[in-house]
Write a protein that binds this DNA or RNA. Structure first.
Lengths: 352, 352
DNA sequence: ATTAGCACTCGATATAATTGAGTGCTAATA
DNA sequence: TATTAGCACTCAATTATATCGAGTGCTAAT
């Protein structure tokens, strides 16, 4: 073993496996790992002194650190990173399939994406025992399939927009002039004809304008467009789900002193998480952000495991878990991966 | 002043006003109120000794208590109760109108009750700086106004049910046989005709059964009924909104040691709150539950201020605020009252 | 390269001392 | 009779001090 202090070199095999074990131990117990108790606990064939030497090396290489001089070692972000990377290399994702019971039947009949994503997030948070986060697809990107107007009252009509994914937008619109059933039927057909196949954002951006300048074959075209435009205008996308914060309150280290502040900011400033998740959209697949790798001043001592999901071949959102840096990655990583694939499958099936 | 220890007697005027002041002081500062500092702070024309005598009496009467022998006094539940009752007597609810800005425009076009109640709850929690709770009307009680079936795919149709309040239920239903536009139009009329005017629960309970045994004037009546029944079957009412728990995390006394457990239980076991709120439905108007008056073992050190709201003349739900016993009742009571009236107004308007 | 031995560190825990805002009681006063 | 001044007492909170033990780094022997 080289006692030379080199800041960066590949780990020897033994070092690597010991580092793994240390990180694992710390994740499960939460107590700094000391040399003596460690060799004892795992009945290792080395003396505490040797272990100390190894640990010293790992500390020089910045995989471990000591909370204070006379304490055991805990992983640094780099240590966690090493651990997680090994996991990622070796993991067999094909397992785990049955662990979650997705309420597919209920989801199949649901037409509000928000509800669906709520169900998924709740599932993920309760399964992981951390907080689940989910960035939902921008509604603006979904493609219109059909528009239906339904009379509700003498001066109110219901605007229904069905998208290609099966998601439905419904809004009430108040109109001044009296419209007959036939008028509405005619409007519906006109709007469906003109808007079908376009994404919401295209419609907002240019289609409306074009249609207004066009000559149409129906009476009262203006009114039909007014109705549609009003209903679509503020198609809010809250597009961030955050579920199961209560789980984080059960983790002692998250509640302690200043860490609670991090937590509060996460809850309140949802934009922080949104920003983080949006960044993960740049690359497909599972991603882990450990401690300081989360590049937000406000958030300290947290990690995030997330993955992207797709509709067909297009990345549309991501879903993941937020928890303390000392997170059970071994359990969470495959869980998140699995969830991502479920969502992809679900959405893709819907949009066919 | 009678130094006799009588367990219950009406308070003298001075005692009452001092009790008021003590409770108020404790609510704002959170520190036990001591005799010396109290007379000092408010430049009262009595000596600390006199104040001690009065406080002693108030303690004998169980309006105040001492956290420990050599500390100042804090209110008991009975003390808070006295304070709140005086507030209720004297309050001028007519103020406060403009303090909240209700996003009426957005709400008007919203057809999903859940969304509307979400907005209201969020408003209430951010305005009160405590957690808002809201029990929504049972969807089962709402009355059907119209049913519309819309084709979505070759084997999928969209079931839309408009209720008298303007709330819309939408569900996807998969059908085996091919249905034409005309079929659906016919179904829609049939279902509207038969179900209109009935409440969902009636339909579930008996109407379906009756219709199945009846001879109908349309083809494929069975299929129409199947569709409707499937869509309505699990008309979930999550019917409890809980918003702004993060506010409670900012209150030191809620985070401390065991109190956090109460909080966690509130979040996780939503049934607790549901139970409490359901009880408030028995009586119209504002209600306050202080400390132990909340008859749930799990919840300690919390108070709830709630009020009922109506559709027309019928009590349908309640809305309120949960916070620490040391809550700013003076602010919260009229706020909750106002919110309740807003909701009543809103719903009543919708259902006309 | 490994290990035994040993002095040293320092957080955690326990114990004692100090402080200060509070009390109750009593006797004098308005 | 109600109020007040005076005084001894209480006790949580703070500060100071001692002890313990699991941990370390270093050195010399294996």
């Amino acid at each position: 073993m080289s006692r030379d202090i080199i800041k960066d070199r590949p780990l020897e095999e033994r070092e690597a496996s010991i580092l793994q074990a240390i990180v694992h131990d710390y994740i499960t117990t939460g107590k700094p790992v000391g040399s003596r108790s460690f060799v004892q606990k795992y009945s290792l064939a080395v003396s505490p002194a040797t272990m100390r030497n190894i640990m010293f090396d790992l500390e020089s290489l910045e995989y471990l650190k000591q909370p204070h001089t006379s304490a055991g070692r805990i992983p640094t972000d780099k240590g966690y990173r090493f651990y997680v990377n090994s996991l990622l290399d070796t993991y067999d994702y094909s397992l785990k399939e049955k662990e979650i019971s997705v309420k597919e039947e209920a989801i199949k009949r649901e037409v509000h994406l928000d509800k669906i994503f709520s169900i998924i997030s709740k599932m993920l948070s309760s399964e992981s025992r951390y907080a689940a986060v989910m960035l939902t697809p921008r509604f603006d990107f979904t493609v219109v399939k059909r528009v239906v107007l339904v009379p509700m009252d003498i001066d109110e009509i219901l605007f229904i927009l069905v998208t290609r994914t099966g998601v439905v937008l419904t809004k009430k619109v108040t109109v001044s002039s009296n419209l007959t059933q036939d008028d509405l039927y005619c409007f519906s057909n006109y709007l469906t004809g003109e808007l079908c196949g376009y994404a919401i954002y295209e419609i907002k951006d240019s289609i409306f304008e074009r249609l207004r300048n066009e000559k149409a074959a129906i009476n009262n075209k203006e009114m039909a467009l007014d109705i549609a435009q009003l209903a679509i205008s503020e198609s809010e996308d809250p597009n961030l789900h955050l579920e199961g914060i209560e789980n984080l309150l059960k983790i002692p280290e998250m509640v302690e002193n200043d860490r609670l502040q991090s937590l509060l900011r996460i809850i309140e400033e949802r934009n922080i998480i949104r920003r983080i998740l949006e960044k993960t959209l740049e690359k497909e697949g599972i991603q882990t952000l450990i401690g300081e790798e989360i590049d937000e001043e406000q958030v300290k001592g947290c990690s995030m495991v997330s993955t992207t999901y797709k509709i067909g071949n297009k990345l549309v959102g991501s879903v993941g878990v937020i928890g303390p840096t000392r997170m059970d990655y071994e359990k969470v990583v495959p869980l998140v991966d699995y969830t991502g694939r479920i969502v992809t499958e679900l959405l893709t099936k819907m949009s066919k």
